[in-house]
């Protein structure tokens, strides 16, 4: 099913998508997307949405199951509080990618902005993953409570792979950065842990689908130094209070 988003307000466009899903559309291609917000907001099921153009903020927010592919850049807030499903961005994505994400995957073939993966969560099989081929801005994984963030830094060798204040308040989950991260870049409650053979094995599995999606070689990616960032403790502020 093909939709032309030209000149449509997001409310109208999202209504078209809703109607299509209710009519059991399984593949939806949207052309001429130009900043419309909330595409795929709160939708569920195993529908696939292809986006040509640049979607607006909060792409796939609260989404539960579908796959969205963006063949351009994406803006702020993709996968906000997303429950399950997949968002693939062939270009860059901007700030607050995967805010409070609860499950599913976000693959970005370019850079991601500030505040990515803040407050990501997990519970058993609900396990969110964000992987970016490029670099990430400041405040990556702040207050992280679960899931995995992987930043590969393969796009621009001049810029830093990751910004400052990494994982402040982290109390669950893990971050892998391809390259060396200085200790001073970490926020309170985060620490650098040893990147072991186990981690390399784990990462190989985690990266398989990502590499297939964008045509990368897993071996080549893994043939590099990695930094693993984990919580210091499950209760970073446990000693802050008294009676």
């Amino acid at each position: 099913m093909i939709m032309d988003a030209k000149g449509l307000h997001y409310k109208a466009l999202n209504k078209l998508i809703e109607d299509a899903i209710n009519n059991s559309a399984k593949k939806i291609k949207i052309t001429n997307v130009n900043g419309q917000r909330y595409i795929g907001g709160g939708i569920k099921g195993n529908v696939e949405i292809e986006i040509h153009g640049t979607p607006g903020d909060d792409l796939g927010s609260f989404m539960d199951g579908p796959t969205i592919t963006v063949y351009n850049d994406a803006q702020d807030g993709i996968g906000n509080t997303m429950n399950s499903g997949k968002i693939i961005v062939h270009g860059d994505a901007r700030d607050i990618v995967g805010h409070s994400m609860r499950g599913g995957k976000i693959f970005v073939n370019g850079d991601v902005g500030y505040r990515v993966g803040i407050h990501m969560k997990e519970y058993k099989e609900n396990f969110p993953v964000i992987i970016a081929a490029g670099s990430a801005g400041d405040f990556l994984g702040e207050y992280m409570a679960g899931g995995r963030i992987v930043v590969l830094g393969m796009k621009d060798s001049d810029s830093e792979i990751v910004g400052d204040w990494i994982a402040t308040g982290i109390h669950g989950g893990m971050i892998y950065i391809r390259g060396k991260v200085e200790e001073h870049k970490l926020g309170v409650a985060a620490k650098i842990a040893e990147f072991s053979q186990e981690d390399r094995k784990y990462l190989r599995n985690l990266l398989k689908e990502f590499c297939k999606t964008f045509g990368y070689n897993v071996k080549k990616i893994l043939d590099a130094e990695f930094t693993k960032i984990t919580p210091m403790t499950h209760r970073p502020y446990g000693k802050m209070y008294t009676e």
Partner: peptide, 15 residues
Amino acid sequence: MIPVGTDALSPAPHH
């Protein structure tokens, strides 16, 4: 959806 025994942290602002 946070680990057992951890403090449930609600940041001051919505990020």
